[in-house]
Design a protein around this nucleic acid. Structure first.
Lengths: 249, 249
DNA sequence: GTCAATCCGTGGTCAGACCACTTTAGGCGG
DNA sequence: CCGCCTAAAGTGGTCTGACCACGGATTGAC
């Protein structure tokens, strides 16, 4: 009669919360690997001593966090950790803040400046080639705003990847959705004059060269200059948008 | 006969997922503010045209993300955005990586170095006083490892707060749990000799002074030196632990 | 007036049934 | 013998209605 019913707290939680932490800890401990298939809901509910609705509450929560993938008619599978949920969580946390689309650039600068310092130490030849390759794409797509934006992002992402730091990488991925939105909103005002784009390539190239020369201080300085120019450009655009009288003013 | 039953996709999702996104979007849009109380589950289920279990799956997911607070016998309330869930998500994402406790320090350096640059521009007198206050606590608690650790963390947190950047702040809070674990693990090896602690105070003080002088380059340099010393210390400790023959070697 | 028991509204859980989707196994026709 | 097609089995998806557990307010007794 020592059944594990309500008489035992089991960690203080009960019901769905208990099942949720059960699976989460199994995930963290590595008992469940990506691709593993869970038992059917009915069997799991039986095994864990809860009803099916309760089990489903827990599974649904795990699914929201991207830890499992529930497929109708097929089963529930363990998923590898996903950075997209991080991005969503960050977006939710930052949502109430004003001007978040501008502020998130600060996080970007923070990550990239540290990443490029690490990259100067750690980047392999393969990493450098990958960055150089994105630089080529950037040059090729000067006249195409769409592809150009992608190439720009790819360049910076390649730098963060070259840092070899999972933490920096994950955080960078997490802020990417917000960065995208920020980028889109900025491009709405910036009409991308040719003079600017050519300077853009130069800026990227000098960042890359400093990195290839394994000079952390120079690389960070180039990167900061690059960001400062973008910032300045945005400011000037804002001014020129309001200084001459507008129709709806 | 144009009821909103299964004939209308309603965004492609159905059931719990639909309810979840419904509330999430309301949260993002600001229609629901922190502290607001939701309708009772039975009424909500009726209003949203779903059964109570389905509604509960959605609510439970929202609760996991820290967006609502479900209280037995009282009701369900909207919660203000919580960084703790961010920390958990980050921990989950980074869990499979090796040496994550060391690597997360890179993220810390990234955030703090950018934060202190911003703080040099933006910090108010009140911010500076807050930082100075934590510095005093640090001095007071030199002989108490527990309080000393807290004061140390408070000092760095105050700097990030003084940056006035919500993004940096949230990300710093997000990595805090991992930072704590990292700190604990490191202290397990570091026997905190008096000579070190005194140098620690000097390092913090010079960081603060450069910040108070509004000198971004000097402040970042001081900060990086501070981190480098800690890193070096850890390395040296590791070496001294393995260099003389150990029992279990 | 104070304290207690009671009642009501809330979330928490359960059981069983049925629906929808996917896969597979078997039968039927070629 | 091969291939297609249908039916069945297994899975998640949903619903219904009931009951339990907790918190607070109301009401009653002292």
């Amino acid at each position: 009669m020592f059944e594990i019913t309500k008489s035992e707290p089991e960690g203080g939680q009960s019901g769905a919360a208990r099942v949720f932490t059960f699976f989460r800890d199994r995930l963290l401990a590595g008992d469940l690997k990506a691709g593993d298939r869970l038992l059917a809901e009915r069997e799991l509910a039986l095994a864990l001593n809860v009803s099916r609705p309760v089990l489903r509450e827990a599974l649904r929560s795990l699914a929201i966090l991207g830890l499992v993938d529930i497929q109708h008619g097929r089963g529930t599978f363990v998923r590898s950790a996903d950075a997209s949920v991080l991005g969503q969580a960050l977006t939710l946390c930052l949502a109430p803040e004003p001007n978040i689309l501008d502020d998130v650039l600060q996080a970007r600068i923070a990550i990239e400046c540290q990443a490029i310092r690490l990259a100067c130490e750690r980047a392999s030849e393969r990493d450098l080639q990958a960055i150089a390759s994105t630089l080529d794409k950037l040059v090729d797509s000067l006249d195409d705003p769409e592809r150009g934006g992608e190439a720009d992002y790819a360049f910076h992402l390649a730098i963060v990847r070259a840092s070899g730091s999972p933490s920096l990488m994950k955080i960078y991925e997490a802020i990417s959705p917000l960065l995208m939105r920020s980028h889109i909103e900025r491009r709405r005002d910036t009409f991308r004059e040719p003079a600017i784009t050519s300077g853009l390539v130069d800026a990227h190239r000098s960042v890359f060269l400093s990195l290839a020369r394994r000079d952390p201080d120079a690389a960070e300085r180039d990167l900061r200059d690059h960001f400062a120019i973008g910032d300045d450009l945005r400011r000037r655009n804002l001014i020129s948008a309001y200084e001459p009288k507008r129709k709806r003013s």
